[in-house]
Computed example of a mutant assay.
Amino acid sequence: MPRDGNPTRERILRAAERLMTDQGYSATSVDQVIAAAASSKGAFFHHFSSKTDLAVHLMRRYVAGDLAQLDAGLTATAHLTDPAARVVAFLRYYEDGADHLMTEQSGCLYATVLAEREFTGSEMNDEIARTARTWRDAVAGLLRPALGGRRDIDVEALADHLYTTFEGGFILCRTYADPSAMRAQLRIHRQLVEALLGS
């Protein structure tokens, strides 16, 4: 995740992300965030005007980190000239990083925000949608040349399937109390795409 150079602010954001991802926005109080960050009310309100303001800044930080992950996958595979090989390598990049991802976080902040009625139709919802579309457009951009213009495959829906695999992976990890479920789901997604590319 990007950092702004202010250790107190970063500590508060990290604590808030962990708490809100684990127990939801509504169930997380400012006092809990302050305690988890080993901070103070004065420090909290120096950086954030309210709990909602904290959530907005947290979402911006999370989105920046998410898009950085997309860029990392694109950059790591940019040297591959064969479109099909690049798609597979791109998906493997996230599969190979799944265990590390699950040591860093237990769930997705997007799901937390989208579950809150307070944010329905809000700027944060719009930001999540923009981010999901950015992933969709990038993945579809890799898939189209690899699929050779096939008309029987909805390329955008297939691109969105990576997003839903991540979200479903988080749910399965919690359901089974098994962080390796994320890697397993990303592996299956890659294998399904490989099958489509080879068919």
Score class of each variant (00 low, 15 high):
Met1Thr: 11
Met1Trp: 05
Pro2Ala: 08
Asp4His: 05
Asn6Cys: 12
Asn6Tyr: 11
Glu10Asp: 15
Glu10Val: 08
Arg11Ser: 15
Arg11Phe: 06
Ala16Gln: 10
Thr21Gln: 02
Asp22Trp: 05
Tyr25Cys: 00
Ser26Glu: 15
Thr28Ala: 10
Val30Trp: 01
Asp31Ile: 06
Gln32Met: 12
Val33Arg: 09
Ser50Ala: 09
Thr52Met: 00
Asp53Tyr: 02
Leu54Gln: 08
Val56Gln: 12
His57Trp: 12
Leu58Arg: 02
Met59His: 06
Tyr62Ala: 04
Asp66Glu: 10
Leu67Arg: 13
Ala68Thr: 10
Ala68Trp: 07
Asp82Met: 04
Asp82Ser: 09
Pro83Glu: 15
Ala85Glu: 15
Ala85Gly: 14
Arg86Val: 03
Leu101Pro: 00
Met102Ile: 03
Met102Arg: 06
Glu104Met: 08
Tyr110Ala: 07
Ala111Ser: 11
Thr120Ser: 12
Ser122Phe: 07
Met124Pro: 02
Asn125His: 13
Asp126His: 04
Asp126Leu: 05
Glu127Arg: 12
Ile128Tyr: 04
Arg130Asn: 12
Arg133Asn: 14
Val139Tyr: 07
Val139Arg: 05
Ala140Gln: 06
Leu142Arg: 14
Leu142Ala: 15
Asp152Asn: 08
Ile153Leu: 09
Asp160Ser: 11
Tyr163Ser: 05
Gly168Phe: 09
Arg174Glu: 01
Ala177Cys: 02
Ser180Arg: 04
Ala181Thr: 02
Arg183Gly: 01
Gln185Asp: 03
Glu194Lys: 00
Ala195Gln: 07
Ala195Leu: 11
Leu197Cys: 04
